[in-house]
């Protein structure tokens, strides 16, 4: 039990590291790159589209292979989201998320990575994001 638990923590660290390396190599931790993609009326930089397409294609194919197996290596079953309803919280939440993404040029994953090398601004973003997350729990616990 303890062994399974600690292996799960080690694998989460290593996979988080790999995920972060992907963000770094693709420069998605740089807000200027993200804004350059979102600014379709300006000097448009389609890099984010390439990153997303490559990540999606890899995940789509990889998930097909992985989910055919009965269970993951370190747990009893796969934990997949089961909700399929497109409701108001989903659309309002995603809408607000997009506005915030545009204001800062950061989303949650890149923000954590950017905090390591990006001076105080990513830390301010992460602190504000934590407040936003906790604030959401107050209105919809």
């Amino acid at each position: 039990m303890w062994r399974g638990f600690s292996m799960r923590v080690v694998s989460a660290f290593l996979i988080g590291l790999l995920f972060g390396l992907g963000l770094v190599v693709s420069q998605m931790i740089n807000p200027a790159k993200v804004i350059g993609f979102l600014d379709i009326a300006g000097d448009w930089d389609p890099t984010l589209l390439v990153v997303m397409a490559a990540a999606l294609a890899t995940t789509f194919l990889g998930y097909r292979l992985v989910l055919k197996r009965g269970k993951p290596v370190l747990d009893a079953s796969f934990r997949l989201p089961t909700n399929t309803v497109i409701d108001r919280p989903l659309l309002i939440g995603a809408g607000l998320f997009g506005v915030g993404w545009a204001m800062a040029g950061l989303c949650p994953g890149p923000a954590i990575s950017a905090a390591a090398v990006g001076g105080p601004a990513p830390w301010i973003f992460v602190a504000a994001m934590a407040c936003g997350m906790q604030g959401q729990r107050l209105i919809r616990p």
Partner: peptide
């Protein structure tokens, strides 16, 4: 932006 990203 951070507040909206976290909340949203």
């Amino acid at each position: 932006g951070g507040v909206l990203v976290g909340f949203g």
